[in-house]
């Protein structure tokens, strides 16, 4: 039942985030299992994106501890690191609710920017690169190969040289995921990856996420409202409401949790049975 507690890749303990008087996340603790696909769900305004922003360093949490443990054994305390180090060293990558691609750059360039840090050290802070030394050229070729691998996975090889802003919405979503994967993450945080996708695109997305879990040493955390995605692919579901955790378990367990139903239908706990009778559950 609780296998994610045995070997967690990310542990969140007593996370609290206050904006002035507003408590967006209140004393939240959970574990993300290594190799799992974990879904973070909850009604609008439950604090899901705030949790993501705390994990990826875009917000500094008011209280709490966030620990990432790599499969190599290294561990990092995220609340002490600036955002770019979280991606570079702690290897937590993310995508955004409103897609943030480099629209004026080509699809391939987007994936090359994601490999900035390894390429930067190969170019010896640009000095080796200016003179076109072999070491840098080899590193760049490898980076292009890596990018091509992901282009192949998201089926965009043909459009590699088109500007990212030119892609259809669904392709942009998948490109953003590929870009995050190019950083070689241990944890991949996806903020509503299926938003705005049609059923076919959402099925493709599911396949991509299953592939990532199977073939790469990457654990996926996703915020999602599309229950078909959540129930189909996730191993572990965490439900938030008003910044607090109200349920934590397998998809089936969560689905039948009266608190969750209450939160989604907007009724008090004691009325749930009444409501359930009415809707015929």
């Amino acid at each position: 039942m609780t296998r994610w507690k045995e070997n967690p890749v990310l542990t969140v303990e007593h996370l609290t985030m206050r904006f002035g008087g507003l408590v967006a996340v209140d004393d939240l603790s959970f574990d993300i299992g290594r190799g799992d696909i974990t879904a973070l769900i909850g009604p609008n305004g439950a604090g899901k994106t705030t949790v993501f922003n705390c994990v990826t360093g875009f917000y500094k949490p008011t209280e709490g501890r966030l620990t990432v443990r790599h499969s190599s054994g290294d561990s990092y305390l995220l609340e002490r690191m600036p955002d770019f180090e979280i991606s570079r060293d702690a290897r937590v990558a993310r995508t955004f609710q409103n897609i943030r691609l480099f629209g004026g750059m080509t699809v391939l360039e987007n994936l090359m920017v994601a490999q900035h840090n390894p390429l930067m050290s190969a170019s010896a802070m640009s000095f080796a690169g200016i003179f076109g030394l072999g070491r840098f050229r080899r590193a760049e070729r490898r980076a292009v190969e890596h990018a091509s691998y992901w282009l192949d996975k998201i089926d965009l090889v043909e459009r590699a040289d088109d500007p990212a802003a030119d892609l259809p919405y669904g392709d942009q979503r998948r490109l953003e995921i590929a870009r995050a994967m190019c950083t070689g993450p241990q944890v991949l945080c996806l903020d509503e990856p299926a938003a705005g996708l049609n059923p076919r695109e959402s099925a493709e997305l599911n396949a991509l996420l299953m592939y990532i879990r199977k073939e790469h040493d990457t654990s996926v955390v996703l915020i999602e409202h599309d229950m078909s995605v959540v129930m189909e692919i996730s191993d572990h579901v965490i439900v938030l409401d008003y910044g607090e955790k109200i349920a934590d378990g397998t998809p089936d367990a969560v689905k039948s949790d009266p608190k969750v139903i209450a939160a989604y239908l907007g009724v008090a706990d004691e009325e749930v049975e009444l409501v359930e009778e009415e809707v015929g559950l």
Partner: peptide, 24 residues
Amino acid sequence: RLPVGRAWEALREDEIACRSLGIN
């Protein structure tokens, strides 16, 4: 054409995305 130049242009396109990709 070097990573630093691409990072400059990426910065012009979207600074937040740059930070999420580990660019200082």
